[in-house]
Amino acid sequence: MTKLETFLEALEGSQTPDDVQSLVVALRESYGVSNAVYHAVNVGPMPYAALTYSPEWMQYYHDQQYVQVDPVVKGALQQFHPMDWKQLDWSSRGSREFLGEAISAGVCNQGLSVPIRGPNGQFALFTINDNCSDASWETFSKEYKRDMMLISHYIHRRVTDIFIPEAEDKSRALSPRETDSLKYLSLGFSRTEISDKLKISEHTLRVYIDSARHKLGALNTIHAVTTAYSRGLISF
């Protein structure tokens, strides 16, 4: 299994906020980075964070009201692309002093932050952070940016399910094409055969399967098929 699959499988088993916290800690090990942070601003009744920064730094950050200075937060509130920290706005003296303090407290020099947008203004943020040269970070980002995009959204999805289980809504409904794709997969057809049957390209088939997985909160294709089956969304 890839790192991504291993993580997603473990995430599937998580039932509580504490479980998610341990997974975020584990993520740090599996990807070999120093820190990982998931922060949901307005998902549950209270802001929720799962992170590896020290409690002392979090307390200090809170006391100093650094949320108003932190360029990561400022960037992610407005923008929605994955952001390398070196692309953020560090022009103010305050932001650079803040970074200096953060680094003294164990935050590292390289970061990749993924803003997460949900329906109706839902907002969360996921970050990985490490100490390395610009060149090694570039290599790491190229290789794992897609993983981080998916991981951030799956964590968000899991946290949403934990905090607001009643949120099962129409955004989770499968389209007929998504249902067909899962059904043929469950019957053991190859992707090439399915795209022939549905008269779509393999690229589009992959999109349908990924979209169905995302809606079902399923972490791999087999899980998507079994979830869809158990909810009566596909039948044989």
Partner: peptide, 27 residues
Amino acid sequence: LPTTGNTMINDHFSSLIGGAPIISPLI
């Protein structure tokens, strides 16, 4: 716009895509 948030296709044109929204962090 990201399809994980509100989009025109999901809000107004979902009939074109079979009635269910397209939602993916990668689309």
